[in-house]
Amino acid sequence: MNAPASVMATQPSGTGHARKGAIRIQNVDKIYDAQGAAVQAVSDCTLDIRAGEICMIVGPSGCGKTTLLNAIAGFHDISGGAIYLDGEMLCGPDKPKAEPGPDRVVVFQNGALFPWKTNLENVAFGPVVQGKLGRAEAIDKARGMMADAGLAGVEHNYPGEISSGMRRRVEIVRALMNDPKVLLLDEPFRALDSLTKSVMHEALLEIYYKNKVTIFFITHDLEEAIFLGHRVAIMTTRPCKPKKILEVDIAHPRDYSVLTSPRFRALMEETVSAVHEEAVKAFEAGEKEM
């Protein structure tokens, strides 16, 4: 996929990493048949996520963006179209449901660390069940990755014993243990207070600068989207498809000073009305979360 020259400036600038994790969402439809009433959650949605970029998906609650994520992750099928990862079809006409796998790891809205495993066991879980590493090796690697992410000291605690911000970090590290092509984040910081959230944003960027993994990040927070993303896709309310795609031409690495920069404000102004419009539509339609 060749990106236009003008966009190259905002492209992720990895050093020596082979680019991987490009997702092509092509004319995807998803119709739910809830109690006999067909609901079109996603309609003719086409979106290219470039390898190694942070792509933010913004839309009002219930617009169908999680449906899209679930289709990529392989949690449910699609009704039409196809999704490709690095040119290989994940799901399409002959195979409506993708197979979940460690190349596309999800970080869930309410967190899904296993409460009955310690943080360290959680992080080591992927390579062990895949048979890629022995238990001892996996534990070693997990300990190292946790230390790198500033999580030394909570290895032997259970997830229920640490703060929710910490839990999110552990969950992201658990995903990265598998060296995934794509991280699928479903409003991961939604339940956090705004101060913790800002800490988490910087932590996520720091992790990203080290790992250069493609990030598909769902949110309804426009500020978060512009602060983190290379691009922001603003989605229409159900049925879900891109309404506007914003290139965020603020250079990475970014920190919180970006939030007060004139360019950031200008981008906010440029997009806030588009988001608001969809939010009003969603509100009037009284859509529930899906």
């Binding site: 992750a73 392989g74 949690f75 979940p100 796998g101 460690p102 596309r104 790891v105 999800v106 869930f108 309410n110 967190g111 899904a112 296993f114 009955w116 495993k117 879980f125 992927g126 069940v129 895949q130 658990r174 995903a175 598998n178």
Partner: peptide, 29 residues
Amino acid sequence: IDEAYPRAAACLGASKWQIFRHIIIPGAL
């Protein structure tokens, strides 16, 4: 059991049997 747990395990590469052993049994405990 919260649906997110077996899903997370599947994402991390667990087989059906591994999900049963690592998620379903301890989750139901």
